[in-house]
Simulated scan of single mutants.
Amino acid sequence: MENPVDRLAEIIAPPAPAATAVDWEETVRRLRTARPADYVQLIERYGGGQFDDYLWLLEPASRSPYDLAETAEEREEALEYLWNRGEAKPALLDAPGVRAIAWGSTDNGEYLYWLARPGDDPHEWTTLVNEARGAEWEHFEMGCAEFLVATLTGEVRSDLLWSLYPASPHEFFPSALIDQED
C-alpha cells in the first residue's frame, strides 16, 4: 500500500520551504498520549495548514488558532460539557478511557478527531467527523493522512463536510504564513 503522505504529495505539492521542526516530546506531553506516525509525516512534510480553502490540519505549537494540543483540549472539554448536558454521546466514544482527539477542523465548524481507544496503537487510530454545532458523527476506518487523501480524491465522501469540498484545483495554505503575520 502506498504511503498516504506520499500520495497526498502527488495531489498537492508540499510547501517550500519544508515545515518547521516540532518538539514531539512536548506534543506527547500536552496531548497525554503518543501520536500517529502518519500525522508526524504530514506535519514534517506540510506543517499545519488549510486544504482547499476549507479543512485545517492542526499543528503542534502553532501560534495560529490551529494549535493541535490547545484545540484538542478545548474540544475534549466542550464535548464533555455537551454530553453532561444531555447531548447523545456516540456509541464509539461511550466506553471507559476512549478519547476523541481533535486533529483537524473546518471553516464551517466541523471537527475531525482520532478515535483513541485504550490499548490501541496510535498508528491504528481511525477518523471521526463531528458536524458543526450538532450531535451527528461519522466514523471512517482510516487514519488522518489516508482520510485527507480519500476526501481530496473523492474516494470517500463525508455527509457532514461541506458539499463544495474538495475544490479543484487543490490548494494548501500553510498556517506558518498566518503565524508570520503576527
Rank of each mutant, 00 (worst) to 15 (best):
P65C: 03
A72M: 11
R117E: 15
H123I: 04
E44L: 00
W162I: 04
L164I: 03
A150G: 07
A100G: 09
M142H: 07
L31I: 01
W83S: 03
D179V: 12
G49C: 04
E136I: 01
W83K: 03
G104C: 13
P174N: 09
T20L: 12
A37V: 15
L164H: 10
R30E: 12
Y165N: 02
D159Y: 02
E110K: 03
E77Q: 10
A150E: 14
V156G: 02
D121C: 08
A69I: 06
A116K: 08
V22M: 07
A95V: 02
T27G: 06
L112G: 09
P65E: 03
A135D: 08
F147A: 05
T106M: 08
V149D: 08
P14S: 03
D107K: 13
F147H: 02
A135I: 02
R85A: 14
C144E: 12
L92K: 03
I11R: 06
W103M: 01
V149Y: 14
A21W: 06
V28F: 13
P17I: 05
A13R: 08
I101Y: 03
L42W: 13
R133N: 14
T20W: 04
N3S: 14
H139Y: 05
Q50I: 05
L148G: 11
L8P: 13
N108R: 11
T71G: 00
A16V: 15
A34G: 07
P36T: 02
T71H: 01
D53K: 08
P90R: 05
D6S: 12
S168C: 01
T126C: 08
W162K: 09
E110Y: 08
T153F: 06
E76W: 10
P65M: 03
N3W: 10
A100N: 07
E25R: 13
R133L: 12
L79A: 12
R157Q: 15
E131M: 07
Y54G: 01
T151H: 08
Y111D: 01
E131D: 01
M1S: 11
E87G: 07
R32A: 09
E110Q: 13
R32H: 14
L148D: 11
R157T: 15
E155P: 07
E2G: 05
P118M: 12
Q41N: 02
E10I: 00
A100M: 08
I43W: 00
E124W: 06
V98L: 06
W114T: 02
T20N: 05
S105P: 00
